[in-house]
Nucleic acid binder design. Structure first.
Lengths: 121, 121
DNA sequence: TGAACATATGAATACATATTCATATGTAAT
DNA sequence: ATTACATATGAATATGTATTCATATGTTCA
């Protein structure tokens, strides 16, 4: 009966349904893609950043405005805007010393709204 | 000129565009909603959980299958399945000692795919 | 009943990260 | 030039969390 047992070092259990596992392996995207995807959702997965995103649905805002709105200090907002920028979720334009941030992707609202639908159920 | 200055204790800067801030404040969902939303995306924001979700697109799978597929130990998978379960992203059925997990929400694929579209740009 | 096994779970550890503080950078106005 | 101000950023801290280990729970089968 040991033919059905296929213990892996790290898995510490047997593969019960090898066909299922193989099929799943085939449809799995590249490691890098899955990593990037997790990184993207990680950016959405913070209350402060979600609030910033939500605020920017209304209109572009400067760092100070966002800090005032969220009652948080300017540095925290600036750090989070950097994260959002790196994830290409926001873009900015400078007008003198003021930096206006706005959303950089149409899908953001869709992702946000789908999330809302899920939690409202 | 100090009428335009409105320093808050925690904000450490002035509100530059009060009208914008007020409008944003109006459209902001409840604190709790935003918190729940962030919590939901946080669940998507982990490579292991994204892989589990992706695997379950193919079919339901037991804990062992998932552990084998991802080459991770059973305990790690079980812990993560609990997180997914608490977020109501997966459900399970028991068949003897085997527990089969499957996706519990149609929106998951949509959210996943929108994320993919974003990172592929 | 007891052995084998699939899964769950608590504790510990290691690592990631959000916020704050202090300060730097860059711009505008006097 | 100097002052005031908006923003950015590095370091430090505190908190959160993913994984592992050990073990418990619950099921099946002999």
């Amino acid at each position: 009966m040991s033919e059905n047992r296929n213990y892996g070092d790290s898995c510490s259990c047997s593969v019960i349904h090898e066909d299922i596992v193989n099929k799943a392996r085939e449809i799995m995207p590249q490691e890098e893609t899955l990593y990037d995807l997790a990184e993207l959702f990680k950016v959405f997965g913070d209350t402060t950043r979600i609030k910033i995103i939500c605020a920017l649905f209304e209109s572009e805002m400067c760092v100070c405005d966002i800090a005032a709105l969220l009652c948080m200090n300017q540095s925290a907002i600036s750090h989070q805007l950097r994260v959002l920028k790196q994830a290409r979720l926001v873009k900015y334009r400078k007008d003198g010393k003021i930096v206006y941030y706005s959303l950089d992707d149409d899908h953001i609202k869709q992702i946000f709204d789908l999330g809302l639908i899920h939690i409202k159920e």
